[in-house]
Write a protein that binds this DNA or RNA. Structure first.
Lengths: 229, 229
DNA sequence: ACCTGAACACCGTTCAAGT
DNA sequence: ACCTGAACACCGTTCAAGT
């Protein structure tokens, strides 16, 4: 009788590669947050030494940029195409929001390096849909940048809120901030914020983001139709 | 004859204080950039030991938050009031842009902690002007957030670009990125970006920001006038 | 050619010892 | 009460030594 094929080893028969490193990095980042991604933690997860990583990727920034890029590409690939151009751009913008919700560290990463690969993908996706929407060529650059900057701002705030609140209840966190806005001293010098405090504590983040996108799209439509900036 | 008053010592007769630390931090950040702000560098500038700083501020994050807050308050105090509400909101938004141009590290800081003091000031200033502009109450929160998120996105990108380009020529840096978008492989899969490449290299940042603000303001006006989102 | 892991040059923060 | 600065517990990155 021939010797039986040995039970497959649990994992880690595959050689180390840039792809494997990026995948492990995403796992660590999603599970334990931004500050948990160290070369020591990553090399432990990959069952190797910290120096080995440098044979495949130049430095930490390159790991983060590649991880963010991969997730952005996947998120865009999952957006169903829509014959209606306005639905199309909304779907793309919401896909970004959901991506940053699922992987908050991406929001930090996108502000670490200008025009990195992930940003190019986002810019391209937005622009393609603006073109489909019939936005004139001379407004496309500014319109795409505006939408991109808006989503980057949201992503950055979301990332920092997650970093701070991590295990805390998110709504309890916002409630605390809102209560601070109601302090006598703060309220006296910041009447607008005082008035908005309850909305801060109770608003639906995704809905508000979506409304913000609608504001910008309405502005693009108005300016285009109205004959210029 | 009484002994002559001794020549005043060069500096550092004043006691250490939170204010002095924040001022020194701003000086270091402006002169040498974000990564130059270490407790060792800061305590050297203040002619003391690194531990002394902790008697006045809890940690590095608190120093950065206080420094950013101070600059935002100063920037807003310098904005001339304008009887025209639309000019008013534009002036405030441009003041933010100019602040981030002069102190790029502020853009990074604002994404480090959600709803920190500096952000409250910005939110309040934007909201007050929206109120003056006649934006209905129910749209104020979303409208103010949209403008704030837009400027935060711009600030983050500006900060990362400065961090990377620091001594390089900014236009040469953008030219390099734009040329990358024209690479055969990149251009084939990213036709929109390919078409925008020259605008990326040649556009006026401040003008484009201002145009972005106009898009959002036009959107707010359109939605408000048109009866809802 | 790739991996290993100790070593290097930093960090932010703490804390015993001073004044 | 505040300051001092060495020490601690980390980092990212390098590099001689292995395979």
């Amino acid at each position: 009788m021939p010797s039986p094929t040995p039970a497959r080893r649990s994992r880690r028969t595959d050689a180390l590669s840039a792809d494997a490193i990026i995948e492990a990095a995403i796992t660590v980042l999603d599970a334990e947050g931004e500050e948990a991604l160290t070369f020591r933690a990553l090399s432990t997860a990959l069952e190797t030494g910290p120096g080995a990583i440098y044979n495949h990727l130049a430095n930490k920034q390159e790991i983060l940029a590649a991880a963010a890029h991969r997730l952005v590409v996947h998120a865009l690939a999952d957006v169903p195409s829509d014959p209606d151009a306005e639905n199309g751009i909304r779907a793309v913008m919401l896909a970004f929001f959901d991506l940053f919700g699922a992987h908050p560290w991406v929001g930090t990463q996108l502000s670490r390096e200008p025009w990195q690969a992930a940003l190019l993908e986002m810019f391209e996706a937005i622009g393609t849909h603006l073109e489909a929407l019939g936005v004139e060529e001379r407004y496309q650059f500014t319109a795409a940048s505006s939408l991109l900057n808006f989503v980057l701002g949201v992503a950055g705030q979301h990332a920092s809120a997650t970093r701070l609140a991590r295990d805390l209840d998110r709504s309890a966190f916002l409630r605390d901030i809102a209560d601070g806005w109601k302090d006598e001293a703060t309220a006296a010098s910041h009447p607008f914020s005082r008035r908005m405090a309850d909305q801060l504590a109770e608003h639906d983040d995704r809905q508000q983001y979506s409304d913000g996108v609608d504001f910008i799209l309405a502005g693009i439509a108005a300016v285009t139709a109205g004959g210029g900036l």
